[in-house]
Structure formats: C-alpha cells, structure tokens
Design a protein around this nucleic acid. Structure first.
Lengths: 339, 339
DNA sequence: CCGATGTGCTGAACCGGGCAAGTTCAGCGC
DNA sequence: GCGCTGAACTTGCCCGGTTCAGCACATCGG
C-alpha cells in the first residue's frame, strides 16, 4: 500500500504543499475554510507526516532512548523495570515521542550505543538507569552533550539532570520501626555493591545502627537474584548470634529469604522479621505477606520522562528528589519472640 | 556539538559526497586507496550517518515496533515480557535495528498506534502479542499491509506470519504425568479466557481429561494476577470434592495458590500438587519449589524477531511452531496422600 | 591509430516535510 | 485611480543520505 505524502494531500486539495504544511501545523497563512478542507482530506486518505522527513528537517528524532544493562534473567524477574518503562511510556506517548529500547551487556556497550544513537540522530535524549559509583557513563554523556536524565543519586551525576528517591530516609525509618518493635540484631541483604543506591542505603544503615547502638548490625551483599538472596539468608541464620530481623534490597531476595527461614524451621515473624524493598504484588502473594518499602514506580518513570523532555527542550538540568519510599507493615514483621 | 555530515567527510577527503557514500557502504565505484582514506577520515571526525536521512531516501525505518496491551501492574509482575523483549532485542541490535516500544490501553489504541507508526514510517514492521480469539488487530494489520509477526496461535492469525509453542501438547503431557502419579481430580486455573492460548489450553485440557476419564476435571478462569489466582484456589479447595492437583496458567497465580493452600492447612505436595506454567526463577524461590512448564523465552523472542526481519525483507509469511514447553518436576508434585 | 571496454569519480535528482521569501490580489484611504 | 497593506497563498531551497547518468581518462585488441 502506497502511503500518502503531503504532496498527495496538496494535489487533492488543489493547493501547494506549503499550504498543507501550514494548515496541518496550525500556523497562519491559510484561511480557516481551506484549513478545514485540508484537514478533512488528510484524515480521509489517512495521511500522517513521515517522521524521517520531519526529523531530517527539524534535526530532532522525536524519540528517547533507554539502554538496559542487566542480563535477561534479572530484568525479567524484577518488576521495577517494566513498571518504570510503562510510566516513562505514558508520558512520552502523550507527546507522541517514541521510546527506543536496547539491552546491552556492559557499560562499554552502553556508551557505544549512546554514541551511535546520538551520531545517527536516532534519539533526542536518554534515560540512564542503575547508577554506579564512579560511573563511566556520566563523563561520556557529558562529552557527547547528549541530553540525559540519570535515574539515581543524589550525587555522582556530574552536570546531568537526575532524579532519585530518598532511600536513606526510608531505610532509617525502617530500622527505627524494627527497633521500636524490640529488635536489636538487624541484618541487611544488600544488592550489587557498586550500585550507587546500594552504597547510599549501606551508609544510611551503618549510620542509623550506630546512632541506635545496634552493634550487631551487618550488611551482606548479593546480586538481586533469589539464589544469592537465599544463600545470604542461610549464612546469616546459621551464625551464632543470628539476627531477629532482616531487610532485603529487593522483593525477590526477600521471598527467597522467607523460604529459607521456613526451610530452617523458623517461624516468620515470631522468630524472624522480614522487610522487602520494592513493594510489588509478589510481596502480597506469599505467606505471611511481606512488610515492604514501596513507592509509585510508574510515576517515578513519568517524572523522569518529563524531566528529560524539559532538558531536550533546552531548559537547564534539574536535580529532583522524588517521593520517599514508604513502609507498608504486613504480616512478616512483629516483635521478636523472647527466648 | 555540531555533528558531522557526509558533506564534511567529503570536503575533508576532497571528493564528492557520492564517493563517500559508496566508500562507507562497501559498494564498488571507488578505488581501494580512496575508500581507506575516506573510512579513516570518517572515523577520525566521528561520523555516523543520520538515520533520518537514510530512512527518508531508503523508505525504511530500521526499527520494529512492539505494542504492549496490558496494565503496568501485570506487565511488571510477569517475567515473560521482559524476557521476550530481551530476546527480540538481541536479534535486532545485531543487525542494528532499533526496537520501539509502546504501552497501550486496549486494542483500539493499539490499532491506532500501528496506523500511526506505519503512516509516519517510524517502523518497518511489528510484533503482535497476546493474540485473542477473533482478534480485531489481525484484519487491521492485513489492511495496512504492515509487516507483522503474531506471537501466538496456531490459527486465527489470518495471512500474517506467526510463531507459537505447542501448548496443547505440553498441557496433555502434564495431565498424563499427574494421572501417572495417581491423581484423578485435577483442576486448572486458566488465564484470561479470551486469549487464544488460553482457549487452546482449555480445549486440550478438556480433551485429555475426557480421554483419561477424569470426570471431575474443571477449569476456572482468572486474570493472571496473584489476587485472582488465590481467590480461584480458595474456591476450588473449599468445594466438596476438592482437587488433588491444580495446574496454573502462570507462575504468579501458582505461587498465590501455594500460599492459599498453606493458609488452609494443606501440605504441598501431599494434600495438593501444584504445576505452574512459565518457569521463572520465582518457581524456585518458594517452598516447596514449584514443578513448572518452562521454555526458553528469550530464544522465542529472538526467533520472532528473525521471522519479522524476513517478512520485512520481502520473504513470504511463515507459520512456525517453536519449542514445546517442557515439564520440570520439582517439590510441588507428588502422588496424592491416600485418605 | 582508432574504437571498445572499464574504472573512478562528479553532479544532480530524489526521498518528504518545514519554512523563508516571493507573488497575487482584495480592500482601503486619500 | 494610485499607492499601500495584509491575507492567502506559491515557490524554492534546505535537511543528509542514496543512486543513477554521465564524463574523463586509462587500457586493450585489432
């Protein structure tokens, strides 16, 4: 099927393509009667302007890029990314921007993708996920002068716009809650240690435990997978002075931890309290349902998308703190059983 | 930063931009010496061709589209889509095709997106998910003559290319296995009833149960969420003649079902055997780990992407059956306890 | 020594919109 | 009737690649 061009509309309307262009873009230069006639014809023959031609003359792609740098296995199991994407997408499609997605193996590949996208003018800007400490992508993006919003922080984002949630405050609140319940031995199963938000959470955990005098507080690292989360839990629960509460850096590890606790004959929450970060529907599926730190992830994505569109429009890069994750207590937390 | 164009390369090399085009695309028309000189200059000044300009002249977008028609909540919780995307993406990026993603509310919106994408020449083809019975998208795509591969079937895909796995065979094998273990009362918690693959599974379930003389076989429908899966399970287990085995159409519902069974004081697998469709890491997290019907979803996506690229290249639409899901027995299935 | 064949390159048209500049013409004041 | 203005168009170039016709020059056979 031959797709109609602006010239086809112009021919049918008996005007020049310049007139059609003015009519379709709501610009002055055509009479209202002509505009209506042109719009009617455009609708009738199903015309929509070629994004390539428009991109070529406007030097803009009407698309933003998102590169995901995690293996398929982990991408799939964490609801985070899909929810983020759907929030980003809602905001973009409302302004008829497209979202271009690419899965990459490592940061070098990711930087190469950014370079190619920008060189090919395939995207007008990018969203950056999973910020690390000393992230090589930041200087690379600054050098390219590619509009970007970093999802993560605060700090370590150079001159780029960024968006984060106050994980430190959320973690502090959680520890204080557990202490109020009577817990003194609290452990934490962290995510990948070189991610910036893991570092922030670890620092906050150390600080609040010190302030409250919890000498046995310990963080062990994992990789967000259930296998590792389970193994870490088994190690924690096998130690002499085992913790009475564990905070997990994602829901998948928390569920694995719950499973390990039950396998080892412990009752949750009487023998062990469990808190999960990222409150997905998974947390409500298991028995007992998990107390979790949640937030509106699609809204987070939408926020980031708006910020990126602003940067693309030439506005100065902003650094914004989003909603702080809030604790939803469920059946997996309780005062520790007195032994 | 001004991004270099083909004219910049031509000027520096002292040749016409036509010569540069030949050199970069490996076409005859330039001497080897000139080609090397041009390539060196292109690399030096960091030239990469504008995808818009190329798209305009080649009438191709070098991109394929994927519209997802499910709410964010469900998209996030099912590992299926993210794994599929990562498989699709691996195949596409190897040929430097981009993947454009859009989340839509319903089929009308999805058809509108296809129409817009095709009119704007934003994509060269699309992948269609979640095939329904009497799916309106099929005739719409045929009418647009937009290259497409339907992920789902067999049947109901019109003249379009399609890819499916033999769910009927997998379900039959599963029922036979449960019967071999000694189960006679088997129930199934299905997904959304108007999805084509739900229908196929339901038909296969009815057929095999009839063949094996399982008169109590029953299918109840759900919507893939844990809440609904749990409710359905509660209803099944509260009935007079409760089943000794339940097959769930996804892993999330299976986990919810496991939780409900435990909450009702039943032991899995002694009192109730559970089989999940879609073997994600979640199935190994819970206690006991779930027997599941699995397959390589990234490979499925890669396969679909290859098929789509073939259709875009003008080859005839093919209908291909992919790998059949295979049963991985774990701790959630056993012979029923004799009462 | 002349035409035939090839090689290596140039110049221009083309893809489909956007937009600045140019053209036409009705209307109005004087 | 002249001069001017502004509305309502048209014309033509631009964006950055691709591709094709054509041209200069070399090479070769007869």
């Amino acid at each position: 099927m031959k797709r109609p061009t602006i010239a086809d509309v112009a021919r049918r309307a008996g005007v020049s393509k310049g007139a059609v262009s003015y009519a379709l873009n709501g610009q002055p230069g055509v009479s209202e009667a002509t505009r209506q006639r042109i719009l009617a014809i455009a609708t009738e023959i199903g015309f929509s302007p070629s994004s390539a031609a428009r991109a070529l003359s406007a030097a803009t792609a009407e698309a933003v890029g998102l590169a995901l740098c995690r293996p398929a296995r982990i991408l799939g199991i964490e609801p985070f990314f899909m929810e983020l994407i759907s929030g980003v997408e809602a905001e973009l499609s409302a302004r008829s921007y497209a979202l271009t997605l690419q899965v990459v193996a490592d940061h070098d590949a990711e930087i190469a993708v950014y370079r190619r996208w920008w060189g090919e003018r395939r995207v007008d800007g990018v969203l950056v996920c999973d910020l690390r400490t000393d992230d090589r992508r930041i200087p690379a993006l600054e050098q390219l002068q590619l509009p970007a919003v970093v999802i993560g922080g605060p700090g370590g984002t150079g001159e780029l716009a960024s968006l984060w949630s106050d994980d430190a405050a959320a973690l502090t609140e959680t520890v204080e809650y557990l202490v109020a319940l009577g817990h003194r031995r609290i452990a934490r199963v962290g995510g990948l240690p070189d991610l910036r938000h893991t570092e922030i959470r670890t620092d906050a955990f150390t600080a609040v435990c010190q302030r409250l005098g919890l000498v046995d507080a310990v963080t062990v690292w994992s990789d967000y997978t259930g296998e590792e989360g389970g193994r870490a839990t088994r190690r924690l629960l096998s130690s002499g002075q085992r913790p009475t509460a564990v905070i997990y850096d994602n829901d998948v590890m928390a569920i694995a931890g719950l499973s390990v606790a039950q396998e080892m004959g412990l009752t949750v929450p009487a023998d062990l309290s469990i808190v999960a970060w990222d409150d997905s529907p998974l947390c409500r599926l298991v028995h007992p349902p998990l107390t979790a730190l949640g937030r509106d992830i699609p809204a987070y994505g939408a926020h980031a998308a708006r910020q990126l569109l602003a940067v693309i429009a030439g506005q100065p890069a902003t650094r914004v703190q989003d909603e702080t994750p809030h604790l939803t207590p469920r059946g997996s937390t309780a005062p520790p059983r007195v032994r």
